[in-house]
């Protein structure tokens, strides 16, 4: 995982497998930097993710809530077709921009 802060945008580059086990450190690290930088836009980049289950959805939902609480928008990018299908089950597309 790599986090890049540029102007008013915070981009989180996720990689490897996202499941219930691996989501916890990703969540903690992202929230820590998010609150520190307080950006206008949070981008979650899934290009490097080789596997995800519904924990990936939980990760996005949680970050969306956290970001919204500091008036920050959330966008998701780089999702593979099947992972997008999993995200779609949640109705998150109404709240988060999928690029």
């Amino acid at each position: 995982m790599q986090i890049v802060s540029e102007n008013e945008t915070l981009t989180v580059y996720l990689s490897g497998e996202i499941d219930h086990h691996s989501a916890k450190p990703l969540r903690e690290k992202t929230d820590q930097v998010l609150l520190l930088k307080s950006p206008a836009l949070l981008v979650l980049d899934f290009s490097g993710v080789s596997f995800m289950d519904s924990s990936g959805v939980g990760f996005v939902m949680g970050r969306y809530k956290k970001a919204a609480s500091i008036h920050c928008k959330t966008a998701v990018t780089g999702l593979k077709a099947r992972d997008r299908k999993i995200m779609a089950l949640s109705g998150l597309e109404r709240l988060v921009e999928f690029r």
Partner: peptide, 20 residues
């Protein structure tokens, strides 16, 4: 779908995903 007792960023989609 979306029912969960866990909180802590659980999406409540486990069974829905298994079904799909």
């Amino acid at each position: 779908a979306l029912f969960t007792t866990a909180g802590d960023d659980r999406s409540g989609l486990g069974f829905t995903v298994m079904e799909s």
